[in-house]
């Protein structure tokens, strides 16, 4: 399976280098007006097309369905709807946008849930503007944006899944040895470039490994959701 497809919907055209981001439609969802405006301005200055800003989750889902952004910058703490639910709702839409979670108070469970629900990256708000813009660019290109903290969470989640079903090892996603190796290095703060050097791989290969760990987890999450829905009579197999 292609990693990009698993991350949500059809493969997008890569937007290329920085400065060539015109036409990438971004929506900002943050209940803090100062932040919302600041982030929107930064994005606009960098050449992005900021198509909508909102501070409410339900509204975000409605607007997203109408304006169809390529990237959604999402705060996890919203007044009306949990950010995780928004991420889930965005992922369930017809042409799901890529979601970059940007949050001040990182609650680990929420971050992990949002990522499992389809968000393709996570960044704390104290990240610098350059880090932020770089993260948006990578998100638009379909790359996973992994902080060391997120890598630790994903690593822990794979281990939890492995321990949960020792009798049925076929059930649940597994990391390859190489993926585990790469993910651990990301969690220990090594950059993709440093990892590539250490493992004698290309930068792109490292990126693909990271992307795969996320895609497998999201796919598993969707399968689990569907299974849950069928078992509880919420859906039927045609």
């Amino acid at each position: 399976m292609n990693g990009h497809e698993a991350a949500g919907g059809p493969v997008r055209e890569p937007v290329g280098d920085r400065g060539d981001v015109g036409g990438v439609r971004v929506m900002v969802v943050d209940d803090h007006p100062m932040w919302r405006d600041g982030v929107a301005r930064d994005l606009a200055d960098a050449g992005y097309d900021v198509v909508a800003t909102t501070g409410e989750g339900r509204q975000a889902l409605r607007i997203a369905a109408a304006v169809r952004p390529d990237v959604v910058v999402l705060d996890l703490r919203l007044p009306d709807l949990a950010g995780v639910e928004v991420a889930r709702g965005l992922g369930a839409s017809g042409s799901p946008p890529r979601v970059l979670v940007l949050s001040a108070s990182a609650e680990e469970d929420d971050v992990l849930e949002a990522v499992k629900a389809g968000a393709s990256g996570y960044l704390v708000k104290s990240a610098s503007r350059e880090e932020f813009l770089d993260a948006v660019r990578r998100t638009a290109e379909g790359d996973a944006v992994f902080t060391p903290g997120l890598a630790g969470l994903v690593l822990g989640e794979y281990r939890r899944l492995a321990h949960r079903t020792p009798e049925a090892p076929g059930d649940g996603p597994r990391l390859t040895e190489r993926e585990t190796e790469v993910l651990r290095m990301v969690a220990k703060g090594l950059t993709y470039r440093q990892i590539a050097e250490r493992l004698v791989l290309s930068h792109r290969t490292v990126q693909n490994h990271v992307q795969n760990t996320l895609s497998k987890l999201q796919l598993h999450n969707r399968v689990e959701l569907v299974r849950y829905a069928i078992e509880n009579g919420l859906a039927e197999l045609d």
Binding site: G38, R77, A104, S105, K125, R129
Partner: peptide
């Protein structure tokens, strides 16, 4: 308190980022 903390975190993060810029 969680809500207030979150607001304070937002402002502090913003000050940090703009200050650095």
């Amino acid at each position: 308190a969680r809500g207030i903390h979150d607001s304070v975190l937002q402002v502090l993060a913003l000050v940090q980022r703009r200050g650095a810029e």
